[in-house]
Amino acid sequence: MDPYEVEFIGENRIISVIPNFSYDKIYLICGEFGPFRAGLPINVPLWLAMMLKQKQKCRIVPPDWMELDTLENIKEEEKRSRFFTKMPNEHYMVEAKLILGAASEDVPNAAEIKTIIKDIWDIRMSKLRTSMDALMKSGGGYGRLDHLTMMEINSAKPLLPSAMDYLLQIQKKAQQRVQQPSALNTSTFSQSGSSQNT
């Protein structure tokens, strides 16, 4: 999947906005939202929030976790732990990118928050690379990835799955060799040419 598709999926998350207009309830296919009352916070999907923001029809209420102390704790925790810690939400990176991109004036300390989220992302990415490396070296065909968010998993594609596919192929070939050691001696030119597509 492309990153924009992951972002697309992340845009379905619900966030809070403060509209500057009043309107009745709106009945969307993904649910009903409203009624909108100017100045009162209301929950809407992220894509709708972004659209209203671009039309300057609302202010974004930053999610609870988008706050310096909370993020500082998450960062420390992430540094301390050998494993991936649970992120405040499954699409934290998408939310951060969109909200800080379109509405940084609605988020207190937006610049610092941007840096710290980037730090957290970097720590997690480096952990992901280390664990991928360890997984490949152990020759494993299975891994558990709790608490990794979709965007992070997507960044390991297609490298990790296809590396594991190749590893499996190599292991299979090696096993065939062990089972039929005589095949080595009898193999001819024609075999080595045609066996690549199997």
């Binding site: 065909g141 299975y142 891994g143 558990r144 990835l145 709790d146 990794l148 998993i153 594991m164 499996l168």
Partner: peptide, 12 residues
């Protein structure tokens, strides 16, 4: 292996 509800894995 057991897959617990909500857990994430990479496998064949």
């Amino acid at each position: 292996i057991d897959l617990e509800e909500g857990s994430q894995h990479i496998l064949q």
